[in-house]
Write a protein that binds this DNA or RNA. Structure first.
Lengths: 215, 215
DNA sequence: TAGATTGTTAATCGATTAACAATC
DNA sequence: TAGATTGTTAATCGATTAACAATC
């Protein structure tokens, strides 16, 4: 059990947690108060043992024959994902993608709070992006330090992404969420999560190819 | 060798191919004409053997001591990913995310062509989204059939996503790229690729938590 | 109690990494 | 030729799935 705590959660498990969370919140809203792994597995089309392992990794324990109490389960997953902590973020690149992310409904559910946007384009600076002020790039480092913001979102073109990331690191940002179609380099001490849409499209395109190919 | 053809490429390999492609195109533009796996591996921070396996999976063969001819390598990867075929797509949900995707620079590099957008909002219908006409939802099925479009992009809210996907399937669309924060159900014969930003954010948030936690 | 579900250990599966002969 | 790189086979590693005793 001590060893279980030492071993980190597998990344695939981590990626499944939001799906559990959203599902469990719906169940809770529907008036349910306990649920079993086989039940979750049926609804989400997963293997029951896989679900059990995933829940186990969050530290949750259940009752044989009964299942897991949903309110505690929701709380445990939220806690595990760090949703109970402040999740203030800076967004750099006040274009459509930035606007889309700020308005993304999945965000509210997982509790990310964009407190300011930045852009290199003087025409955008001073304006608003979905109610968020757009500030000039040269304020980024100082403001990040002053406001102790820990998350930076990169939605600039590929060519500008690395210098934006460098500024974020200098400003003390500890986690960078990169949407630019390029791979960034950050120090070991900074968390980097990259959303490479090209990779996703490659999977789609290649599989479609195979599907349409005459055997 | 016959068995190698039968065995499908591992998904992680597939996801790395766009990175190779973009990198190799840059090398080619820089005047290089051959490259070795160790060289690629150094530049992209990957294991050399992993790179070799990935390239092997595309059917490419190299010369010992020399490496691989870059023009052929680029062509082989493009062919493998299906970029030489028409990649016309419909986009449903003419919001910021849709606009962002249409303008996404990574797309041009990988050759996706959005030919029409659709929206349920009458205020948006008849307008343009980055130069693409926005059509009413009830035209989707007929137009997809008539134009033989095979790719559908879903950028609507979670609540509307499944019905949009159903319409796409009815219209003969064979590959769905889903950005809505919900999991879709499609027939076996339809390729589904889901971009779950919540999963990505969960990874970021959880790792940041661990990083900031006092041991 | 009987039976379903949990918790846990073992088996399987697949991807990555290591080892090494073939080759240019 | 010597040496670097390819192609290929084996070892390792980690996630998923299967098996089964414990338990409510």
């Amino acid at each position: 059990m001590d060893q279980a705590k030492i071993r980190p959660i597998p990344e695939p498990s981590l990626r499944r947690l939001p799906a559990y969370l959203f599902y469990l919140r719906r169940m809770l809203a529907g008036g349910r108060d306990v649920i079993s792994c086989p039940h979750i597995a049926r609804d989400l089309h997963l293997d029951p043992t896989l679900v059990r392992k995933d829940l186990e990794a969050t530290g949750m324990i259940g009752k044989p024959k009964v299942g897991y109490p949903i309110p505690q389960l929701v709380g445990t997953i939220e806690e595990f994902l760090g949703l109970h902590n402040t999740r203030d973020a800076f967004l750099v690149g006040a274009g459509h993608l930035g606007a889309a992310l700020i308005g993304y409904e999945g965000f509210r559910e997982i509790g990310l709070n964009v407190v300011a946007a930045f852009d290199a384009d003087p025409a955008k600076v001073g304006g608003q992006l979905r109610g968020i002020s757009v500030l000039p790039m040269d304020k980024l480092i100082e403001l990040a330090q002053r406001m102790a913001v820990h998350i930076g979102i990169v939605t600039v073109p590929a060519a500008a992404a690395q210098s934006v990331a460098d500024a974020m690191v200098t400003g003390g940002i500890r986690a960078i969420w990169n949407f630019a179609p390029t791979h960034l380099r950050v120090p070991e001490s900074v968390v980097l999560e990259e959303v490479q849409l090209s990779s996703s499209l490659a999977v789609l395109s290649s599989r479609l190819n195979k599907m349409l190919a005459p055997e």
